[in-house]
Write a protein that binds this DNA or RNA. Structure first.
Lengths: 175, 175
DNA sequence: GAATTTATGTCAGTATTATTGACATATTTC
DNA sequence: GAAATATGTCAATAATACTGACATAAATTC
């Protein structure tokens, strides 16, 4: 590095903005990657025993949390196509984890519910993930969970945030 | 609810533990799902323009952040098999985003580096993700980022945590 | 009441990313 | 020289996603 070229150095600093700040953001990005990897790893192992995958987990989870959900609702939450959902949902219904009922109001719609079996599996999967959250909370202190909650919410796409918060705040019907 | 059956109520409470606590953990689980969905959504759109997928992103990212990484290192970080990595890495090398060099110490090993082109794409992808983190930080306050960092680290599998923190704390070589 | 729209279901073809198992090659270590 | 190690490769398979096309039933609109 040429010591007598201060202009060049200024350019470098301008490009990297505040280095500490940038480094902190980078760390958050990578820690989120690792945290999520382990967060989904727990349920993955249990799901294997049932011949299910992550896609089954997500469907079962949101149906358990939002009984009476329609197909269209579910597709919006999961952001997948009906063609992707179909085989997964069919399998969950076929194996008796989810129950589909035509709507009484609009009979074209299907309202989805978990069976006792589905409720039980959804609970087991959920408890693996809340356990991880509980451990992190106990390590970082109860206030940290509130901050983490706020921070995660702020990461959600603004246009989706209200909807996501509404779902997350759903009365817990799993117990 | 029968007001004169305190015993029953106690049983319910025992099963659900502290309801507020449980509800808070459930919310964290769901918010993490939505946050991560959007977190990976940004880069996905950019990657499409290059004919790359998420797998390419992860490889490019960790090579950019840890120049000289060996294949074995990379497999450990990503927790995938070499057969899964192979086509992705070959494509990144073939298109000139990553450079592979035999180790001078152990010539069986391959040391991976990003090219200028690879560095540039890695930067662009990273900035999409740090931007989201920056937005969340500005919404929740600078202290929140530190708490979020601690909380995410606590979510990582204890046996992996030291390694993950080491990687996340790597000097930023992207700029 | 006929025409259109909507909610769902289904088929076919394809892509990405992952797996296991088997085997090849080069290099290092014992 | 034999064994272990790091990487590369082939084949078969699976899970999860996509687009496009089309079918059906029910609701809505004209």
């Amino acid at each position: 590095m040429d010591m007598d070229e201060p202009a060049k150095q200024r350019v470098v600093l301008a490009h990297s903005e505040s280095t500490d700040e940038a480094q902190s953001l980078l760390e958050l990005v990578e820690l989120l990657f690792f945290a999520y990897r382990d967060f989904v790893g727990d349920p993955d192992r249990l799901l294997e025993d049932f011949g299910f995958g992550r896609a089954h987990h997500r469907v079962l989870h949101f149906v358990a949390r939002n009984p009476g959900l329609t197909i269209a609702n579910l597709l919006t939450i999961l952001k997948i196509t009906k063609q992707s959902l179909n085989p997964v949902l069919k399998e969950l219904i076929g194996k008796g984890y989810i129950i589909s009922r035509p709507g009484s109001d609009d009979r074209r719609q299907r309202h989805l519910f978990v069976s006792e079996r589905g409720k039980s599996l959804a609970q087991d999967l959920m408890s693996l993930q809340t356990r991880r959250m509980a451990r992190a909370t106990s390590e970082c202190g109860p206030e940290s969970a509130m901050v983490a909650r706020q921070f995660l919410a702020a990461m959600i796409e603004p246009s989706e945030r209200a909807e996501a918060l509404k779902i997350a705040a759903a009365q817990d019907r799993l117990r």
